[in-house]
C-alpha cells in the first residue's frame, strides 16, 4: 500500500519536474502555460480572492449531493420494493444518462436562474445516477438465504429493510457515493461557466478572459483538492459505518 503510494508520488514528481523544466527551458509565456510552482504560489497567495468562490462552489456541491440523496434513496427503495416500477422507470433512467447534461446547462440557467439553484441541480443530476444504481444493485444482491430467514421470522418490509437490506447494501451505496462526490465538482463548475456571479467556475471564466492563466490553474487546483477531500471524507465515513465484510456465500 505504502509502496504503491510512493510509486504514484514518484510519477507525479517526475511529471511536475518535466512540466516545470519544460516551461522554463522553452520560455513558455505564463499566459499560455504557467509552471506548477507559479500555480501553487498563486493558489496560496490569492487565497483571499479564491476562498469565497470556493465556498460557493463547495456549498453547491454539498447541496447537490443532498438533493441527489433525497431523490435517489427513496427511489431506489421504491424500485426495489416494486419490481414493476423498476421495469417501468429503468429505460428512462438509462436514457436520461445518454443525454449530455452539459447541454442542459444553459437551459437550467434559464429555468432556475443565475443563482446557485441551477448549479445545485446540475451537480445533483450528475450524482443521482451512480447513487441510485449502486444502492439498487446493493439491495438486489442480498443473499437469498438471509431473505428466506427473514421471511420465516415474519419480518415486514420495513424491518427487513432496516435490519437486512440496508446494512447489506451499504458497501455498494458508499461505492456509488464516492464516485458521485468526485464527479459532483464537474456539474457545479459547468453550471457556473454558463452563467453565474460567483464560484470557482465563474472565477475561471473571468480569469481566462483576462489571460490570467495562473489563476485558472489555481482554481482548478482548489477544485481538485475539494474533490479529494470529499472523497476522503466519504471513505472515512464508510470505514466508520461499515465495520464488517459481507461474506458472499
Amino acid at each position: 500500500m505504502i509502496r504503491s503510494n510512493l510509486v504514484a508520488l514518484a510519477v507525479a514528481g517526475v511529471l511536475l519536474c518535466l512540466w516545470e523544466g519544460g516551461c522554463r527551458f522553452f520560455g513558455v509565456p505564463g499566459f499560455i502555460l504557467p509552471p506548477p510552482s507559479v500555480i501553487v504560489v498563486t493558489a496560496v497567495m490569492k487565497a483571499p480572492l479564491i476562498a469565497p468562490h470556493a465556498a460557493v462552489t463547495f456549498l453547491e456541491i454539498i447541496l447537490g449531493i443532498a438533493l441527489a440523496l433525497a431523490v435517489a434513496v427513496p427511489l431506489a427503495m421504491a424500485m426495489f420494493a416494486m419490481p414493476a416500477m423498476e421495469r417501468a422507470l429503468a429505460p428512462f433512467l438509462v436514457a436520461s444518462q445518454a443525454v449530455p447534461v452539459f447541454a442542459l446547462a444553459p437551459l437550467l440557467v434559464v429555468w432556475l436562474g443565475y443563482g446557485i439553484a441551477s448549479k445545485v441541480f446540475m451537480a445533483g443530476v450528475i450524482i443521482f445516477f451512480p447513487i441510485l444504481v449502486s444502492l439498487l444493485e446493493g439491495f438486489k444482491s442480498c443473499n437469498r438465504d438471509f431473505q428466506t430467514l427473514f421471511r420465516l421470522m415474519g419480518g415486514g418490509f420495513w424491518k427487513t429493510m432496516t435490519l437486512l437490506y440496508w446494512p447489506w447494501a451499504l458497501p455498494h451505496f458508499f461505492a456509488g457515493l464516492k464516485v458521485g462526490v468526485t464527479v459532483a465538482t464537474i456539474g457545479a463548475v459547468i453550471g457556473e461557466w454558463v452563467g453565474a456571479q460567483q464560484g470557482l467556475g465563474y472565477l475561471m471564466i473571468q480569469s481566462n478572459a483576462r489571460l490570467k492563466v495562473d489563476l485558472v490553474f489555481a482554481a482548478i487546483l482548489w477544485l481538485s483538492i475539494m474533490g479529494l477531500l470529499l472523497w476522503g471524507f466519504v471513505g472515512r465515513l464508510e470505514k466508520r459505518v461499515v465495520t464488517w465484510k459481507n461474506n458472499p456465500m
Partner: peptide, 14 residues
Amino acid sequence: VAAYMQQKDLLLPW
C-alpha cells in the same frame, strides 16, 4: 409455525 436452521449459520455480519 416453524423455526428453521440450516448448514450455514446465517449470522448477519453487522
